[in-house]
């Protein structure tokens, strides 16, 4: 054991320095949400289940075409989830109300990535392949991805899908918020453009939030008083208003606290500037030095 006095104090010095910077690192967690992102407001009372958004999405993202026969309602018999071949899907639920002909009234729900304001997937991604852009999109960069699927573990909406059947170069697949399109001036997401009834309104999130609340206020009885995505996991860029409670529509019920808050707080208070490892190193070094001196033993070299 070549622990000389000089070496030892060198390390202790480093430890002291790192403890000195400690207070500056112990700030409270701060949201990294962009201040004025774009978003989409999905009005479920407007959606008529035409699934044109699925078509448009697969066209603009060069995905395989959605399940054929857009007007065939059998696709609604099973609840679908977005997957590696479809970034958005529309599901049908029944409200329990009947129309004049005693037919049950459907509610259609389009789902895709919510583009969270403080996305768990972005916080989780080991290499930062997922990033929250200024314009609101949560963007995936395949060239960094290593395929650990921690983003999928983290996402509270169960959105990112994976190309499980690609052995060598699988990708994480999820709605891109048509990042390339909306980055251009006047560009619109494919699904919002095509929606015939404007069930998807594209705009600044702040504007949409007001709009959503105005719609709820101006149409008493039409909507439940809840803008889904306003507060869920700290807010999402995509917002929903609906005539039925969201819990009946398979929307996860989520806390207002951003998912990554706790883990990031712990991580940063423990490891910013690596203060705790350095401290521990110094401490153990001290103990080792002491115990070595106590039973100075020339024999304990090597051996590990």
């Amino acid at each position: 054991m070549q622990l000389t006095r000089r070496n030892f104090f060198k390390f202790m010095g480093a430890t002291g320095a790192s403890v000195a910077v400690l207070p500056s690192s112990a700030q409270a967690w701060q949201s990294k949400a962009p201040p004025d992102p774009y978003g989409c407001l999905v009005d479920l009372t407007r959606c008529n289940g035409c699934r044109k958004c699925e078509d448009a999405c697969s066209t603009v993202n060069e995905l395989p075409p959605p399940i054929k026969d857009v007007c065939d309602c059998t696709v609604f018999e099973k609840k679908r989830r977005p997957d590696e071949n479809a970034f958005t899907v529309v599901n049908r639920y029944f409200s329990g109300k009947l129309d004049e002909l005693d037919k049950p009234l459907p509610v259609f729900v389009k789902i895709q990535c919510m583009h969270c304001q403080d996305p768990a997937c972005v916080s989780a991604c080991i290499v930062g392949a997922l990033t929250k852009k200024e314009n609101g999109a949560v963007h995936y960069d395949v060239s960094k991805c290593i395929g650990c699927r921690y983003c999928m573990v983290a996402c509270p909406f169960e959105i990112p899908a994976y190309e499980y059947h690609d052995p060598i170069t699988p990708r994480v697949r999820k709605c891109t918020f048509c990042f390339d399109r909306i980055s251009k001036d006047g560009g619109l997401p494919g699904c919002a453009t095509i929606c015939p009834v404007e069930a998807i309104t594209f705009g600044k999130r702040n504007t949409l939030l007001e709009l959503a609340k105005k719609r709820i206020k101006d149409n008493p009885g039409k909507y439940v008083d809840h803008v889904y995505g306003e507060k869920e996991v700290g807010g999402t860029s995509w917002l929903y208003v609906s005539s039925l409670p969201f819990s009946k529509l398979n929307f996860p019920q989520l806390p207002e606290k951003p998912s990554p808050k706790l883990s990031e707080t712990i991580q940063h208070s423990l490891f910013s500037y690596l203060w705790s490892p350095i401290l521990l190193f110094g401490l153990l070094g001290g103990i080792m030095y002491k115990s070595k001196k106590k039973n100075d033993n020339p024999q304990d070299k090597g051996g590990a």
């Binding site: 453009t193 929606c195 404007e198 705009g203 504007t207 949409l208």
Partner: peptide
């Protein structure tokens, strides 16, 4: 046109 930022409540012609 849809999504007129100045008149967010105004729906587009197609809608």
């Amino acid at each position: 046109d849809s999504f007129n930022a100045d008149h967010p409540e105004r729906i587009g012609l197609k809608a």
